[in-house]
Amino acid sequence: MEKLREKLTTLRAEADTASQRAEDAEAQNKKLEQELTAKEQEIISLQNKISLLEAEVERAEKKLSDAKLAKEEEENTKNISESLQRKVALLENELDNTEKNLKETVEKLRQTDVKAEHFERKVQQLEAEKADLEKKYDEMTEKYNEKDKELEETLKSFENL
Rank of each mutant, 00 (worst) to 15 (best):
E33C: 04
N79M: 06
A27D: 10
L46K: 14
L151D: 03
V123T: 01
A13E: 15
E99R: 11
L102K: 02
N101A: 12
E92T: 03
E142S: 13
K68Q: 10
L155E: 12
N29R: 13
Q41N: 11
L32P: 01
A15N: 15
D148R: 12
E127C: 05
K68D: 03
V114P: 01
K71A: 06
E150Q: 08
T105W: 02
T37V: 06
R86D: 02
L109V: 04
V88C: 01
E82Y: 03
A128R: 15
H118T: 13
E61Q: 15
I43A: 02
A22C: 09
N48P: 00
S65R: 03
E72S: 07
K71V: 03
L69D: 12
E54Y: 04
K87E: 08
T77P: 00
F158V: 04
L161R: 15
K103W: 06
E146L: 12
E92Y: 00
A89P: 00
S81R: 04
E152S: 12
K108V: 07
A13S: 15
K62H: 05
S51D: 14
A131M: 12
K130R: 10
K135N: 14
R86N: 05
K63D: 03
A15R: 15
D138F: 07
A89S: 06
K63H: 03
V123R: 01
N79I: 02
Q124K: 15
K122N: 10
Q47E: 13
L36R: 12
E14Y: 15
E107W: 08
L4G: 00
A13Q: 14
S19Q: 12
T10D: 13
E42Q: 06
K39M: 12
K149A: 13
E56Y: 03
E23H: 07
E74A: 09
R59F: 05
A89D: 05
E58N: 14
A116G: 07
L133M: 15
A55M: 03
E107N: 13
E56V: 02
V57S: 06
K103P: 00
E127F: 07
E120S: 13
E33L: 13
A38C: 00
K3R: 13
A27R: 13
D66I: 07
S83R: 07
L84D: 02
K130L: 12
Q28D: 11
E73H: 08
R121P: 02
R12L: 08
K149N: 09
A27S: 10
T17C: 06
K7L: 13
R59T: 14
K136S: 15
K87F: 03
R110L: 10
A18P: 01
E134M: 08
K62C: 02
E134G: 05
D113T: 15
K103S: 14
M1F: 09
A116F: 09
T9M: 04
K122F: 05
F119T: 04
E58P: 08
T105D: 02
K39G: 03
V88I: 07
K68V: 02
T154W: 01
K130P: 00
T105P: 00
E92D: 05
H118Y: 10
N97T: 10
T9H: 06
Q124W: 10
